[in-house]
Write a protein that binds this DNA or RNA. Structure first.
Length: 265
DNA sequence: GTTCTCGGCCG
DNA sequence: CGGCCGAGAAC
């Protein structure tokens, strides 16, 4: 009769994660149901915030629907029609947070491995390396990064990086801010060398001559001195990261012990 | 002590 | 309403 108490593995969740729906059978709220999740290790989760805390920053639960266990791509359903307008009007002044470029949007709330594209003699698409590696890209897409900046958890904007003098921006938005975003993105996403725009034609009419696989930046020269200075910065940054990771580990430790007190209390 | 279950607050 | 969590009941 009471077969509702079965732990189901949920499609769109990795193996090991279970979802359970329990129907209330008495009281004023009889008939209502509660949803729980179980981690692979068996820990029970009874709310989205709790799940969120456990998964930390590794996962964006933004459009995850706890009750159904599915991703709701249009979490702003009622804005469905407005969305287009919003991007044209309200978006003035505010950064476009919808850019999908720097962040991989997965179907699940959990990080999914990238599908590996391998050569397969009988598969036209998968042997087409060009298609696999070169996705269409919007001209001047870097403009979408305008206004985005790194911040710490208190939302205090972190000090921006300084760009070497030799770097000059190119295109419709020549601010240093966008240039920095463009170059970091290029370094992050491309495995080939970043040279900037090498043809002088691109400077005169970027809309036509832009090399879209390179950032909106004039060609530049990197000296040995530049490299040595950068090495020092990296070393410094690694020390900071090391400290931050240590702090984070301790914070998580105290958080999980607080979670246990949840029940004890 | 832990787990289950429903109440009830709050947005 | 429904999500979230407190707390009593049940084990």
């Amino acid at each position: 009769m009471v077969m509702e108490k079965k732990r189901m593995d949920c499609p769109s969740l990795p193996p090991g994660w279970k979802k359970e729906e329990v129907i209330r059978k008495s009281g004023l709220s009889a008939g209502k149901s509660d949803v729980y999740y179980y981690s692979p290790k068996g820990k029970k989760f009874r709310s989205k915030p709790q799940l969120s805390r456990y998964l930390g920053n590794t996962v964006d639960l933004g459009c995850f629907d706890f009750r159904t266990g599915k991703m709701m791509p249009g979490k702003m359903q009622k804005n469905k029609q407005r969305l287009r307008n919003e991007n044209l009007t309200i978006n003035k002044g505010k950064p476009d947070l919808n850019t999908g470029l720097p962040i991989r949007q997965t179907a699940s709330i959990f990080k999914q491995p990238v599908t590996k594209v391998v050569n397969h003699p009988s598969n036209k698409v998968k042997t087409d390396l060009q298609r696999a590696t070169e996705q269409p890209r919007q001209l001047f897409w870097e403009k979408r990064l305008k206004g985005l900046s790194a911040s710490d958890i208190t939302e205090e904007v972190l000090r921006s990086m300084e760009l070497p003098k030799g770097l000059t921006s190119l295109g419709p938005d020549t601010s240093d801010e966008t240039l920095l975003s463009a170059i970091s993105s290029a370094l992050h996403m491309s495995s080939s060398p970043i040279t900037g725009q090498t043809t002088s034609a691109a400077e005169k009419n970027p809309a036509i001559w832009l090399n879209t696989s390179q950032p909106l930046c004039k060609a530049f020269i990197v000296t040995d001195q530049d490299i040595r200075e950068q090495e020092q910065k990296v070393i410094q940054a690694r020390r900071c990261l090391e400290d931050a990771l240590m702090v984070d580990r301790m914070a998580r430790a105290s958080e999980s012990s607080r979670d246990s007190e949840d029940k004890a209390a």
